[in-house]
Amino acid sequence: DEVEIEDFQYDEDSETYFYPCPCGDNFSITKEDLENGEDVATCPSCSLIIKVIYD
């Protein structure tokens, strides 16, 4: 799936974006990952991944 970065929750302390996963955990991707060109957020509890859409 693809999710807009605006739909993520941002945690300023950890500089990490979170998005709810269907399994009950959260996908996460850090601001640093995005700045380095990464665009895939992973869920630590299951095998799902999502593509992050940002400009």
Rank of each mutant, 00 (worst) to 15 (best):
K31V: 12
G24V: 04
Q9R: 09
C23T: 04
Y10A: 03
E2T: 15
V40Y: 10
N36F: 03
D55Y: 11
E35Q: 11
G37R: 09
I53N: 01
C43R: 00
A41S: 13
Y54G: 11
I53H: 11
D55E: 15
G24A: 11
A41N: 13
D55N: 15
S47E: 06
D11M: 12
P20H: 07
E6I: 13
D25Y: 07
Y17C: 05
D25A: 11
F18I: 02
G37Y: 08
C46M: 00
C46S: 03
D33I: 10
E38G: 08
G37E: 10
D13C: 06
D7K: 15
T16Y: 13
F8V: 01
C43K: 00
V3D: 00
I49K: 06
F27D: 01
F8S: 01
D39P: 13
S28P: 12
I50Q: 03
F8D: 00
D25P: 02
Y19H: 11
E4H: 05
Y19P: 00
D7I: 03
F27T: 14
Y10S: 07
L34A: 13
I5P: 01
C46R: 00
D11R: 10
F27G: 12
G24I: 02
E4P: 03
C46K: 00
C46G: 01
I29F: 15
T42R: 12
L34M: 12
K31E: 06
E4T: 04
E15T: 08
E6R: 04
I49N: 10
Y17V: 01
L48W: 06
S14W: 06
A41C: 13
I29T: 05
D11A: 09
E2D: 15
G24P: 01
D55G: 10
T42G: 12
E2Y: 15
E15A: 15
A41G: 05
S47Q: 14
I49P: 07
E15D: 03
Y17I: 01
C46A: 00
E38Q: 12
V40G: 13
G24E: 14
E32W: 04
K31F: 01
P44H: 09
I29D: 00
V40E: 04
S28F: 12
E38W: 07
F18W: 11
S47A: 14
D55M: 02
P44C: 02
F18D: 05
D25F: 04
D39A: 10
I50K: 15
C46W: 00
I50T: 07
D13P: 08
D25C: 05
S47R: 09
P22C: 07
L48S: 14
E6Y: 10
V3R: 09
E15H: 09
S45R: 07
S14N: 10
S45M: 02
E15P: 01
N36R: 14
D39T: 08
I5V: 02
Y17G: 03
V3H: 11
Y17A: 03
I49A: 12
K31S: 03
N26A: 11
K51M: 10
A41T: 02
V3W: 01
E38L: 06
V52F: 12
I50R: 15
K51L: 06
I29R: 10
V3K: 02
S28H: 06
D25R: 09
D7A: 12
L34V: 12
E2L: 15
I50V: 08
Q9V: 06
Y17W: 14
I5S: 02
I5K: 02
P44I: 03
E32G: 09
D7L: 13
E2S: 15
F27R: 12
G37P: 06
Y54S: 08
Y54F: 11
Q9D: 10
G37D: 10
K51C: 06
V40P: 03
E35Y: 01
I50Y: 02
N26I: 05
V52G: 06
V40M: 01
